[in-house]
Write a protein that binds this DNA or RNA. Structure first.
Lengths: 187, 187
DNA sequence: TAGCTTTTTTATCATTTGATAAATAGCCGG
DNA sequence: CCGGCTATTTATCAAATGATAAAAAAGCTA
């Protein structure tokens, strides 16, 4: 089965016409390590499905990078803010590993959401997943200091930990890499 | 026109059958100041429409309160995490002012979302708004210190500022009330 | 208005995190 | 295997924030 359908089947059941039309709208994509799926300043016009690989969503503030999220296979995602508001993105999407997958353009998504109620349900569910994740993130940033947030990340995202640099982990935790090194050393 | 429809009309256009059925599912609600719309530990089973009033979503960590968000009229919202996962809520919803409005139960929402594509679109849009807001929040917490986050709040949410205590603002910013007082004093 | 409670401010000291620089370790291409 | 990158650690000092206590201000109610 097509990897996009393997993924969407676990979220919502699509009838054959919806499945077929959805698949026709997805275009294969391939990115070497370090390539940008979306540059800051561009508008997010696609959802991306990652079949293999890892992508980070990040932005820069005065030469310091901060990471909003990591997206690893299999996942269907986009830079939501720019996608929803049509504003230029503050964030870039950058492949941390050689990444392959597919993408679908917003006009196709909007048309398919209008034509097939179940596809609208699918994209609503994607927003629901994103909301749950962001709420957890905000909650942790409010109540836990960097040391605890680091431990939680290690506990809950152990497989991801093997694939990202400590610098990127620090940028995700919202601290400097030097601070993270200190935390790892145990004070 | 019914205040719920005045609100939803600005998000998505509903046809008369959908409008009527939607309205029939909303039940009037009234809360005095200090009342709980949802207690921590309960499962979030409703969306709430606030016609007049103000509600905070917050949780406690070792006697310290942290605030996830303020919801002021007019708004249709819920504690999303518990609503979506059916898990007991970590968060409470508490009226900061005498609050009036309506609520709609999850089984009704699910039925209406199945029956009326446009109602599904409406609730998808509510998730979209929530996502945009949370992304901005995460972004700010990563890149700005408490002083800047305070200034941004004052700039962007001036009307809300008049209606909440400094203690609640500190709990929203993720700092102690004493720290916020120091920030306001200007170092 | 007096007295009580709650909110906000001020002060002091401890802890966490940042900035910077330098040392060490790891990695990769020739 | 060497040399040069890049990533990570260590060290030092500064800045931001927390914890605690107490004072001052504001609000409420009898």
């Amino acid at each position: 089965m097509h990897p996009v359908l393997t993924y969407t089947d676990r979220i919502v059941r699509l009838e054959p016409p919806a499945r077929d039309e959805l698949l026709r709208a997805f275009v294969p994509q391939e990115f070497p390590k370090g390539a940008c799926l979306l540059r800051a300043g561009q508008t997010s016009q696609h959802y991306h499905f990652i079949e293999h690989g890892l992508v980070k969503s990040s932005f820069y503030k005065e030469d310091k990078e901060f990471i909003m999220n990591f997206f690893k296979e299999p996942i269907l995602f986009t830079e939501i803010n720019s996608y929803l508001t049509s504003a230029p993105s503050k964030y870039q999407l950058l492949a941390l590993e050689p990444t392959t997958g597919y993408r679908i353009a917003r006009p196709d998504i909007e048309r398919l959401c209008r034509q097939h109620h179940a596809i609208e349900t699918l994209f609503k569910q994607l927003l629901a997943f994103a909301s749950v994740g962001m709420m957890k993130r905000i909650s942790e940033m409010l109540e836990e200091n960097a040391t605890v947030r680091y431990r939680l990340f290690v506990q809950e995202k152990a497989p991801l930990l093997q694939r990202i640099s400590l610098g990127d982990l620090a940028a995700y935790l919202g601290i400097t890499q030097v601070s993270l090194s200190r935390i790892r050393a145990g004070q």
